[in-house]
Design a protein around this nucleic acid. Structure first.
Length: 603
DNA sequence: AGCACGCCGACT
DNA sequence: GTCGGCGTGCTC
C-alpha cells in the first residue's frame, strides 16, 4: 500500500473545447499511485460526454475540493513526465493572454508521443552527452560584457556581414547567438534560440558546431521526423543545461534551468504561429521571461516595430555593435526611361564580376519566369527579364537563381550573378562583391500595413551578405527609409514608423483583436469589450456573420482577453446553430465564435 | 464533442 | 395519458 502517495490528480484535458479548459480532479487508483506524478499523460473518463479523454497531470494532491465522488483515472499513458510545471504555467498564461485554450498551446509545446523512442530512451539508448561544461566564449563584435552583462532584456542590433566558422561562411549574427548560448551553458543554464526558418537554423548550427563542442545542442525543427522531434524533446527534459535551436515552437522547450531566450529576426512572419491561439513567438518569449526571469535577447539587423516600441519604452535595453562596420550602401536613383538597372549599378556590377559573385535582389516573381530561366529560355518578366538583360550584357557570366521554391543555401567565390527573390538570398563564401537591390519601389507597393518595416528588413538582410566594403546599391528608393538603410540606422526609420502608428492607433502602438461569428453572438460581446477598455474599429459582413476589429491599449489586454474568452464560453455552451442541410444529413455545427488577438491582418 | 435532462406537440 | 422532439447545460 502507498498510504502517503497522493490520491487525487488535477489534470488538464487535451481538448480544444473552451468549456473544458480548466483543471479537473480525478481519483488515482491504488495501483497507479506511484506512477501518476505531475507531467505524465493519462486517459480519463468524461462521463457526461461518455468518452475517454487524453489529459496531462498538472499536480497531485491528498484531497479534492470538488463535491461528490471523483471518477478514477482510466489509465496511465506513460511514466514519462512531459509537461513541466514551468511549461504548464507558460501555456496557461499564453492562452489567457490570447483568449485561447491551454491545451492548444500544449499542442505546440509537446510533440506526439513515440513509443519506440521512449522505450529506447528509458533503456538508456541515448545520444552520448558531451563532456562539458564548455568554456565561456567572448561575444565578439560588442563592447565587453555589454551583451552578456546584467541586462535582463536586450534589443540587440545584429552585426552586419559574415563570419567564417570551420571553413563555412554564415551571417555574423548567427555566431553571436551561438556565443550567447554557450556562455549560458558555461554558467550552468540552458539557452533557447528561436529562428524563423531552417536556413537560419543551419547557420546557427554551424556556429554551434565550431564553438559548442562541449554543450548539448538540440534541434527543434519542423523538418524533423516525429521520432527525431520526440527524441530531442526528451533530451531537453533531462536535468542538465542544454541549447535548444529551433523554429517558433521551440520557445516552449522544456529545458532545465532556462537562462536565456534569444529570438532572431522577430519581424519575420514565420515567427507568427498560424495555429490557435495564434501567439507570436516573441510574445510567448515575453511571457516566459516574465514568469522565469530568464534573459531575453531580441536580435535583428532591422528591428521589428514591436521591438522598437519596447526599446523606446525602456523595457528593452538597446545594444549595438562596436565598432559598427556598416555595409557600404549607395542610394542609386532610377535612370528615367532607361533599363531597369541604372548605369551606376551596372558599372558596379560589371566591375565586381571580375572579383566574385554579385547578388541581385528582386521582388517576388512569377515563378514561371524563373522556371523558364532555369530552362535557359528567359522570359520578358521579373527575375527572368533581369536575367535575360544581364545575360546579354555579360556574355559568358554564370547566372544562378534562388527563389522561395528552390532556394540556394550558398554559392562559392567564383564570379557570377546570383538573382534571388527577397528572403531567398544565398550566402556567398567571403561575401558578395556587389549587391543590387533592384525592386525596392515595387516591394514598397505591396499591400500591407507593415510593408516599410518588411522592406527595410529584407534590404538589410541582403546588404549584410556583402563583403566588407563592397557596394550595395539600393535602386530607385528615396526618402527616410532609403536614408535609414544608407546610414545603417534602421531604428531612426522604425521610430518614425512607430510614431505614425501611434498617431493612427495601429499595432504595435496598440493591440487589436478580431471577433468573428453570427451578429447575435458578436454584438453583445462588443459592449462588454468596450467596458473592458476596447474600442470598436469597424465591422464587416463575412460568410459566418460579421467580423469586428477591436483595439485597446496594452494595459487593457488582460481585461479584454478575459471578456472575449467569456464570450467564447457562452457561445460554446449556449444556443448552437441548427445545421439544417438540405440533404438531411446531420452536419457538425461550425465553431460559433472566433477570437483572434493581435491578428496581423486585422487592419 | 457528446450525452442527459426537461419541457411542449401528436399518438398507439 | 406518454413518446420524443430539440434547446440547454455539463463534463472532476
Amino acid at each position: 500500500m502507498s498510504a502517503d502517495a497522493p490520491a487525487v490528480a488535477r489534470v488538464l484535458l487535451d481538448t480544444p473545447l473552451p468549456q473544458l479548459d480548466h483543471l479537473f480532479d480525478y481519483r488515482i487508483p491504488e495501483e497507479l499511485r506511484r506512477a501518476v506524478v505531475p507531467g505524465v499523460r493519462v486517459r480519463v473518463p468524461l462521463r457526461m460526454a461518455g468518452r475517454i479523454a487524453d489529459a496531462y497531470v498538472v499536480e497531485t494532491a491528498a484531497t479534492s475540493e470538488v463535491p461528490g465522488e471523483l471518477s478514477p483515472i482510466e489509465a496511465l499513458v506513460s511514466e514519462q513526465p512531459v509537461l513541466t510545471p514551468e511549461v504548464y504555467a507558460l501555456a496557461r498564461a499564453v492562452a489567457d493572454r490570447a483568449a485561447g485554450s491551454a491545451s492548444d498551446v500544449l499542442r505546440l509545446a509537446i510533440p506526439k508521443r513515440q513509443v519506440r523512442v521512449e522505450k529506447a530512451w528509458r533503456d538508456g539508448r541515448r545520444p552520448p552527452e558531451p563532456p562539458g561544461p564548455p568554456a565561456a566564449p567572448e561575444v565578439t563584435g560588442y563592447p565587453d560584457g555589454v551583451v552578456h552583462g546584467t541586462a535582463d532584456r536586450v534589443a540587440l542590433d545584429a552585426l552586419p556581414g559574415l563570419a567564417e566558422v570551420g571553413g563555412q561562411w554564415i551571417g555574423a549574427w548567427a555566431l553571436t547567438l551561438a556565443e550567447l548560448a554557450v556562455r549560458e551553458v558555461a554558467e550552468g543554464r540552458s539557452a533557447v534560440l528561436v529562428v524563423p526558418d531552417y536556413r537560419d537554423q543551419d547557420q546557427v548550427q554551424l556556429a554551434l558546431d565550431s564553438i559548442a563542442t562541449a554543450a548539448v545542442v538540440l534541434r527543434f525543427d519542423a523538418r524533423q521526423s516525429n521520432p527525431e522531434r520526440y527524441s530531442a524533446f526528451l533530451s531537453a527534459l533531462e536535468a542538465r543545461p542544454c541549447i535548444v535551436l529551433g523554429n517558433r515552437s521551440a520557445v516552449y522547450a522544456p529545458v532545465h534551468a532556462l537562462g536565456l531566450i534569444a529570438i532572431w529576426n522577430d519581424g519575420d512572419p514565420l515567427l507568427a504561429e498560424p495555429l490557435a491561439p495564434y501567439v507570436h513567438a516573441r510574445d510567448a518569449a515575453l511571457v516566459r521571461h516574465q514568469q522565469t526571469g530568464c534573459r531575453l535577447v531580441l536580435s535583428a539587423l532591422s528591428r521589428s516595430t514591436a521591438v522598437q516600441r519596447l526599446a523606446e519604452l525602456g523595457w528593452l535595453r538597446a545594444v549595438a555593435p562596436r565598432p559598427l562596420r556598416a555595409p557600404n550602401v549607395i542610394l542609386t536613383p532610377d535612370d528615367p526611361g532607361s533599363p531597369r538597372i541604372p548605369q551606376a549599378a551596372w558599372r558596379a556590377a560589371s566591375q565586381a564580376l571580375t572579383e566574385g559573385p554579385v547578388l541581385l535582389q528582386v521582388a517576388r516573381p512569377g515563378s514561371a519566369a524563373l522556371d523558364a530561366m532555369r530552362a535557359g529560355t528567359p522570359m520578358a518578366a521579373d527575375a527572368g527579364r533581369t536575367a535575360h538583360d544581364l545575360a546579354r550584357a555579360f556574355p559568358g557570366v554564370r547566372v544562378r537563381i534562388s527563389d522561395g521554391e528552390r532556394p540556394l543555401e550558398r554559392v562559392d567565390r567564383e564570379p557570377g550573378l546570383v538573382i534571388a527573390t527577397r528572403g531567398a538570398e544565398p550566402i556567398a563564401d567571403g561575401g558578395y562583391r556587389a549587391v543590387l537591390l533592384l525592386d525596392g519601389q515595387r516591394m514598397l507597393l505591396r499591400e500591407s500595413a507593415r510593408v516599410a518595416e518588411d522592406c527595410l528588413r529584407w534590404w538589410s538582410s541582403a546588404a549584410s551578405l556583402a563583403a566588407a566594403g563592397a557596394p550595395v546599391h539600393l535602386v530607385g528608393v528615396t526618402g527616410p527609409i532609403a536614408l535609414a538603410l544608407a546610414t545603417w540606422r534602421q531604428s531612426d526609420f522604425l521610430s518614425r514608423e512607430l510614431a505614425d502608428r501611434r498617431q493612427l492607433r495601429f499595432p504595435p502602438a496598440v493591440r487589436v483583436a478580431t471577433v468573428t461569428g453570427p451578429l447575435r453572438l458578436v454584438e453583445p460581446l462588443l459592449a462588454e469589450a468596450e467596458g473592458a477598455g476596447a474600442t470598436v474599429v469597424g465591422t464587416e459582413h463575412v460568410e459566418e456573420g460579421v467580423r469586428t476589429v477591436l483595439r485597446f491599449d496594452y494595459a487593457h489586454g488582460g481585461a479584454v482577453a478575459g471578456v472575449l474568452r467569456t464570450g467564447i464560453l457562452r457561445a460554446a455552451s449556449g444556443r448552437r446553430p441548427r445545421a439544417s442541410s438540405g440533404d438531411g444529413r446531420d452536419r457538425r455545427p461550425a465553431p460559433t465564435l472566433r477570437v483572434r488577438m493581435d491578428d496581423p491582418d486585422a487592419l
